[in-house]
Every structure is written in structure tokens, then in C-alpha cells.
Simulated scan of single mutants.
Amino acid sequence: MAQLTELTKEQAYAIADSLAQASSLVLELRIRERTSLAPPDQDLLEQYENHLDQMVALFRAYGISLIAEGAEQARSDIEGAIAKGKAQLKRIADVKAAISAAAKLVDLGAAILSRDPFAIGEAAASLRAKPEKQG
């Protein structure tokens, strides 16, 4: 079995706090746009918000461990990608693009839970990519 690298409690909490902030941004978007959101989009945003909240609880309760090879790069990728996702949620006027950013944050959280630095790197790269124009 591969060696696991435990992130410190402070590192795990910083990631959890950042994902909690992202969840709050999704909630804020849902509230702000509630009159113009189609019901399926409302439901999708609420699901992503709930997924992020669940991940936050898991990270705080159990910490985060990563497969050792590539763990340090993965930790760096996580921090930058979450910041990028939060920035996208803050400035996005297009709801479809916001839904995409929220989905990518959930994907990143799932990749972190998988402990696989490669999956984390891919999810982080997806968040760092320029948002597609919705039209």
C-alpha cells in the first residue's frame, strides 16, 4: 500500500474553511438569483452547496491524507484551485458558469477525499482553466 501523508490540522482546516467560504458563495448566488434561476439550476446549486458542506465536515472531523508521491504539489494545487474557484463564483454573472465553477469545486473535494494527487492535480487544473463562455 502506498505511503500516506497527513496534512497538519491547520492545513486541513484551512482547506475546509476555504471550501466553506465557497459553499457560502454558492448560497449567496442562489439567494441573489432565486427569481431568475430555473428550478433545475436552483436544485443543482443547492446540491453543490450541500456537497461542499459535507466535505467541509469530513475534512474537519477526519483531517486530510494524501498519497505521499506528489502530496506536496497536490496540497499546493488545492489551495490555488479553491482560491480560483471562489474568485470565479464571486465575479460570474452567468449562472451556468457559476454552476460549472461550483461543480468543479465539488470535483476537487472528491479528488481530495480520493487521496490521489493526480486526481487532485486534474481537478485543480480544471478550476484554473479559463471558464467557458456560455451561450
Rank of each mutant, 00 (worst) to 15 (best):
K104P: 01
D94M: 04
G85L: 05
E79Q: 15
A83F: 11
S76L: 14
G85M: 03
I78G: 07
A81P: 04
S76W: 11
K90T: 13
I78M: 11
V95L: 07
Q88P: 00
A93T: 09
G85H: 03
I92K: 01
D94N: 12
D116H: 11
A102H: 03
G80V: 12
A101N: 02
A98Q: 00
A87T: 12
A101V: 02
D77P: 08
L108S: 03
I112V: 10
A87Y: 08
R75D: 11
K90E: 13
S114N: 08
I99E: 06
L89K: 07
A102S: 11
Q88A: 10
D77Q: 11
R75W: 09
K84C: 09
S100F: 07
S114K: 06
L113M: 12
K104F: 05
S100V: 10
I92A: 12
I112A: 02
A110P: 00
I82Y: 03
K96A: 13
E79W: 11
G80L: 15
A111N: 07
A103W: 04
I112G: 01
A101P: 02
K104Q: 11
A87F: 12
A111P: 08
A93K: 10
G80R: 15
A102V: 03
K86W: 05
E79T: 15
L108E: 02
A97I: 08
R115W: 06
G85N: 02
D77A: 12
R75H: 14
K90I: 12
G109F: 00
A87I: 07
D107G: 09
V106G: 04
R115S: 11
A98C: 00
D107W: 12
I78P: 05
I82K: 07
R91V: 14
A111T: 07
S114H: 07
I99C: 05
A102G: 09
S76M: 13
K90D: 10
R75I: 04
A101L: 01
A97L: 07
D107C: 08
G109K: 02
E79K: 14
E79N: 14
A81D: 05
G80I: 10
G85W: 02
K86D: 06
G85R: 01
S100D: 10
A98P: 01
V106C: 05
L105D: 01
G80Y: 10
G109Y: 00
E79S: 15
A97D: 03
I99T: 08
D116G: 11
K96N: 10
L113N: 08
I99K: 04
V106P: 04
A102K: 06
K96W: 00
K86Y: 07
D116P: 09
K96C: 01
S114L: 08
D107M: 12
I112R: 03
D94W: 05
V95F: 03
R75T: 14
A103S: 14
I92Q: 12
G109S: 02
D94Y: 05
P117Q: 10
A110K: 14
R91Q: 12
K96D: 13
A93R: 11
A83L: 14
